[in-house]
């Protein structure tokens, strides 16, 4: 078990956002987190990274390989964030720095977290760009984010997230801003990286199709609670909880076929 979230509760300004979330992430497995907007999916991801908004109160536990993250001093937490736990956001246009070259954004992380030398970091960055299948990795290293298409930018964002060989990758709606044809490529990439590198992936998405394609385990959230957890095929084919059934029934496919 890489990451264990137990009874996580988050209160922001007197409002209960998370009301006791339990999740476990295993290496080499994709754990899908489904639910509508406002159900607390994104907050769960942010809590793991210690990126909750100011003034939020957190109780419960988030253990990374047995180490409790919630009580970690900020300096230690900084090392974990971006080092052992990395995140990919919905919109690659805003998660990449527009004024820095792709190479700079990749190597910055490595040199800071891993203390690599310039040449070493460069080699690793090009290697990473190849790994996320950016055509012409050497060339791409020197270019700026705006010179890439949305799908390519998301691949670069994934490369940045992988720069410090994290154990846990949190992907928050990583394909929602992309077209289906591009989405297919990014999903294949995510799945491949998870298998190859033994990453524990938390995939936050509202799209049950995406969930079905890449997740091994699926959890369904509603109003700050996980209402159902289980293996993908069971949750999507024989849902236990009435809410999961409503979600599946609201899909366009359900009404036609």
């Amino acid at each position: 078990m890489t990451l264990a979230i137990t009874d996580l509760k988050v209160t922001i300004g007197g409002k209960d956002i998370l009301r006791g979330v339990d999740l476990t992430l295993e290496p080499g497995r994709v754990h899908g987190l489904a639910g509508e907007s406002g159900s607390g999916k994104t907050m769960t991801g942010l809590a793991v990274l210690g990126l909750l908004p100011h003034g939020s109160r957190v109780t419960g536990g988030i253990a990374l390989e047995g180490r409790e993250l919630l009580t970690l001093p900020p300096k230690e937490l900084n090392k974990v964030r971006g080092g052992e736990v990395a995140m990919v956001f919905q919109d690659p246009a805003t998660s990449l720095h527009p004024m820095l070259t792709v190479g700079r954004q990749l190597t910055e992380h490595m040199r800071h977290h891993l203390g690599l030398g310039r040449a070493e970091a460069r080699d690793r960055a090009v290697e990473l760009l190849r790994k996320v299948r950016i055509p012409g990795a050497e060339e791409a290293y020197r270019r700026y984010p705006h010179q890439f298409s949305g799908g390519m930018r998301q691949r670069i964002a994934i490369a940045v997230a992988l720069a410090c060989s994290p154990k846990v990758l949190i992907a928050d709606e990583p394909t929602t801003a992309l077209d289906v044809t591009v989405q297919a490529g990014v999903l294949r990439l995510l799945r491949g990286l998870c298998d190859e590198l033994g990453l524990a992936v938390l995939l936050v998405t509202h799209d049950l199709g995406v969930m079905s394609a890449v997740a091994d385990e699926v959890s369904v959230m509603k109003d700050g609670l996980v209402v159902e957890t289980g293996p993908r095929s069971r949750v999507l084919r024989e849902p236990d909880h009435p809410y999961t059934r409503t979600l599946l029934a609201s899909l366009p496919d359900a009404e036609v076929s």
């Binding site: 294949r188 799209d207 079905s212 394609a213 890449v214 095929s233 999507l236 599946l248």
Partner: peptide
């Protein structure tokens, strides 16, 4: 992607 729970990429 189809939400059929089959895990087909």
């Amino acid at each position: 992607p189809k939400p059929d729970g089959m895990g087909v990429l």
